[in-house]
Design a protein around this nucleic acid. Structure first.
Lengths: 143, 143
DNA sequence: ACCAGAGTTGAGACTAAGTCTCAATAGGAG
DNA sequence: CTCCTATTGAGACTTAGTCTCAACTCTGGT
């Protein structure tokens, strides 16, 4: 998956530098969401000597390319989720942080209805679903 | 509207102190969303001598009572919206910040479908719609 | 293989957002 | 009115993110 990220960055016309390769690898080995601080900690732990600014800059780049999406967790923190560049939404497991992608199953009808009632011209929307993933449900029911 | 906030706080069993009354009034006179910094600036401008911590504490209280909802703006900032305590979503005008409430017109079907497909047990969701309110549409079309 | 120059980098200062602590204060129940 | 406790403001502190700048390193052209 690190490869995909790098290819997409290459497509975007930016340089494939050492730090970017390393960060791409770190992102790839993470599952579910992660925060900028997580990435920074990973890099630090491996003594990669990557600066704070570089991490934020890469995340911004990836977000611009829709390779990563910013998700606002219920507790107010910001997390990032590596994902497909197409429009979709996320299901976030509140126990383990696993992420599942959801495509637009009917949300457009909801936004259209809201637009009709309110008179707003809707430009974008954000839907985030929080719950427990199948694995965490199993773990809990076994206890 | 300040009165409603205070009554609700009273119901919640907390003290109706001076700072809380003043902040409630400030919130009431704001339209649309506002950030903690906005409130703080309001208070400062009027030399109310209200501390930063008090503002955040009140917002937390109000959020607990669902009298105010936290909205994550597209630019990543956190804003608050005074609103009805029932479950609903917000339409945010990206030009002027006006807020309109939207009740659940069909979103439950979407979450149910997402749950079915993914196996997640969905506990909560957040839907935010961004666009231009009727007034801002008019203003722009007149220019 | 080399070079030049533009894009990128890390360090660290800086800002903004939010939390925490603690002594002083002020609601409000009785 | 009194007393107890919730609440307060100040300010230190933490965390998230941005900015600047000199040094470095990709990469396309030769």
């Amino acid at each position: 998956m690190a490869r995909e990220l790098l290819e997409a960055l290459d497509q975007a016309g930016v340089r494939l530098t050492g730090p970017r390769r390393e960060l791409a690898a770190l992102i790839a080995r993470r599952q579910g969401h992660f925060t900028a601080a997580d990435l920074l900690a990973d890099a630090e732990q491996r003594s990669l000597g990557i600066g704070r600014a570089t991490v934020f800059r890469l995340l911004e780049l990836l977000a611009d390319q829709n390779l990563v999406e910013r998700v606002d967790l219920p507790d107010g923190r910001h997390a990032y989720v590596p994902c497909e560049p197409s429009h979709h939404h996320h299901l976030v497991c509140v126990s383990c942080g696993a992420i599942s992608e959801v495509d637009d199953c009917g949300i457009d009808a909801v936004t259209a209805e809201a637009a009709r009632r309110s008179g707003f011209e809707i430009q974008s929307h954000r839907l985030e679903l929080f719950g427990r993933c199948p694995r965490c449900q199993n773990v809990e029911s076994r206890q």
